[in-house]
Design a protein around this nucleic acid. Structure first.
Lengths: 245, 245
DNA sequence: GGCAAAAAATAACATAGGTTATTGATGGTG
DNA sequence: CACCATCAATAACCTATGTTATTTTTTGCC
């Protein structure tokens, strides 16, 4: 099932018609990319909005001297900025981590949504606002948290987001990031990422091996990362009303 | 003149009618706040979109143990997230730096814009996308730049943004931030902010005294901060077309 | 125009995390 | 199934930035 629909339904109730439109859009113009491939580069002219159907990707920025920062991850069901196409150039690059399938959503798709699908429009605004909140939380993460807090926080975030898209199984999830990726995302060195992961393992907070992550006790990992899920805004619109139904 | 209009006009051409609507909206429901006052707090239910008419404010987040991070600055002409009111709670606080005047823009204002003011709608999307890009750049800043690069970068960003809103004068601008504010924004300690500013002063990159900043040579400060203004997307929509007019 | 509070400056010392280098484990592929 | 490449682990050493404390300067205010 389409992870975007799954995710948006956590926030709004979609009608069968809403679901059809989203399913159709995600089926046209599908592209597949190998791992470690750039889908688009800083300076490119943005054309479509990309929707991740499967696999993990990231946005990153690079300084002239080569320093690289991953500024966000794209997990299945995530979309890059709505309306990007009004900008002249991309200010960052988008690259795959694992093998990735995307659907390119053209301008017209969003016109259609705006005109006739108010629930989807609201859900997409929610997505946009949550993405902004995530980016703020990363700022907090890099600015204030220590290495192990930061790592724990990032792992919590990924786990929550995957769960929302229906991609976790009990205490586990897929985890295709290398320690080098984690270093670029956390602003730590590779060596220190390694030390930090050992620390989290020693504290029995994570089991990370191969391309799989297990979180035996999410509450404890959240505490270790000073993680508060508020910023993911995982509560259904008007859920007060639902309670009265 | 309204700094929002001034800013948006850098991106789209507004009609007299557009300007009237914006001017009117900025004149209703105006509130004034003392320096160092919280306009809204994490956990509050967002009601209106705030537009800064004058003064400086910031968004910040705080950990239970008191560590605080300023995640963005609001300068005159800036707005907080469009459509915030669809979320149940704020995930951050908004506080003033200097004395601040804001206009509260209600939901209905945005309905009106969506229905009848396409140029303003586009301009507001542009604002939203630029704000997202700024937040990504802060992530980069905190993750990869050294203390002095980071400080130089932040000062460049502020200077560019003020200039866009028509609030610089030649090489100078108002600068109400304390070193403690700069520390919270850059993720550095107060002491190190002090050292870093001295360094920039010694290199004749800035003259910072009282509540005023002077940047004798912006190019050199940009180099010191590895600052590339791309992410501010300060190019007019369809400027290719304009060239043919 | 003098006083209290805030802000900035300076100093001495401490440490989290970075750097460079080497080795060991995994895994994809011809 | 053997080889090369990538990834992870470990070690020794280094430095940018943090911490705590004190002093000086600036600012706002009665």
């Amino acid at each position: 099932m389409n992870p975007l629909i799954r995710k948006l339904e956590q926030f709004v109730r979609l009608s069968p018609g809403d679901r059809t439109v989203l399913t159709r859009a995600a089926a046209e113009r599908v592209r597949k990319f190998a791992p470690r491939f750039d889908i688009s580069r800083e300076g490119d002219s943005p054309k479509d909005v990309h929707l991740i159907l499967s696999g993990w990707a990231c946005r990153y920025k690079q300084l002239e001297d080569g320093r690289r920062q991953i500024v966000s991850f794209f997990l299945p069901g995530d979309m890059c900025d709505l309306n990007v196409f009004i900008l002249k150039e991309m200010d960052h690059s988008i690259g795959t981590i694992s093998e990735v399938t995307i659907a390119d959503l053209p301008r017209e798709f969003f016109d259609e949504i705006g005109a006739g699908y108010p629930r989807i429009a609201t859900a997409l605004w929610w997505e946009t606002l949550v993405n902004a909140a995530i980016q703020r939380e990363w700022t907090m993460n890099l600015g204030q948290r220590t290495a192990s807090e930061r790592m724990a926080h990032l792992l919590c975030e990924i786990f929550f987001r995957l769960r929302l898209a229906g991609l976790t199984e009990d205490h586990s999830c897929e985890f295709p990031l290398t320690q080098a990726d984690l270093a670029e995302a956390t602003g730590l060195s590779k060596v220190h990422v390694n030390r930090t992961l050992q620390e989290l393992r020693a504290a029995k907070l994570i089991v990370l091996k191969g391309k799989a992550l297990m979180v035996p006790d999410l509450e404890r990992l959240m505490d270790a990362g000073l993680f508060n899920a508020n910023y993911l805004h995982m509560d259904r619109e008007g859920s007060q009303l639902d309670a009265n139904e």
